[in-house]
Amino acid sequence: MKANKKKPKKEGEKMTSKKSEKLIDKKGIRLDGRKVDELRPVKMEVGVLPNADGSAYLEQGRNKILVGVYGPKEAHPRHIAQQDRAVIQCRYHMAPFSVDERKSPAPSRRDIELSKVIREALEPAVFLEYYPRTSIQVYIEILQADGGTRCAGITTAALALADAGIPMRDLVVACAAGKAGGKIALDLMDTEDKVGEADVPVAFMPNLNAVTLLQMDGNLSVDEFNTAVDMAIGGCKKLYEIQKEALKSKYVSEGVKEE
């Protein structure tokens, strides 16, 4: 988890060199058996919550994320409404049972920050100016966390928004790359994220070829950073194909056939 990241990093400064070797073995295989440029197994499902206007569920490795979307509807409280566009109210929330040590269900500093960056990653994709004075609510529940939940949250939220019938310029898909065990690797999991050297989450709109979120945590050289961004965008494109399938398959199973 990013929240716990600062501390273990300082304490583990000495351990880094030792553990780094372990993160990726000589053959280039990672702790969970993946190659450096491999994603975790992903499963996506759309329209899982009948009571929400739109919803989606995602599993990426050991991450389990559920997103519900409402709106656009009247903004409450009234003062948050904007006269010229809709607002997205985004809540990223980790369930108390989502991590090893029980997490307080109250929104933490990290939860609030992630809610903001996820909102800002989604905003460019939605036609907010079509629905002034309204709000679109996005609730992201992390049921189980294993690193890279902000990215997985964005990917799932984009699916839920599309499922709600909210007009979008493009889907948003997010994936992280980083440096673990001295090598640039795709889609870091929790241990790699905590012990590793750096993490670069990227959110991307594939058809418009535009980046909506780019963060970096840790240390990378310029070359390493460029490689990581390229790798993350590559991962996004792979995830996009799965996202596409997930969105279409809900309706194909409901009887709409592609002709």
Partner: peptide, 25 residues
């Protein structure tokens, strides 16, 4: 795309001298 094909947000439908109708931009 062909008529009645299933598309998702962001799919490029047409290029050039066309008029954008419902649920497109």
């Amino acid at each position: 795309y062909e008529k009645k094909q299933l598309v998702i947000p962001g799919d490029l439908l047409a290029e050039g001298d066309y008029v954008s109708g419902d649920s497109t931009y």
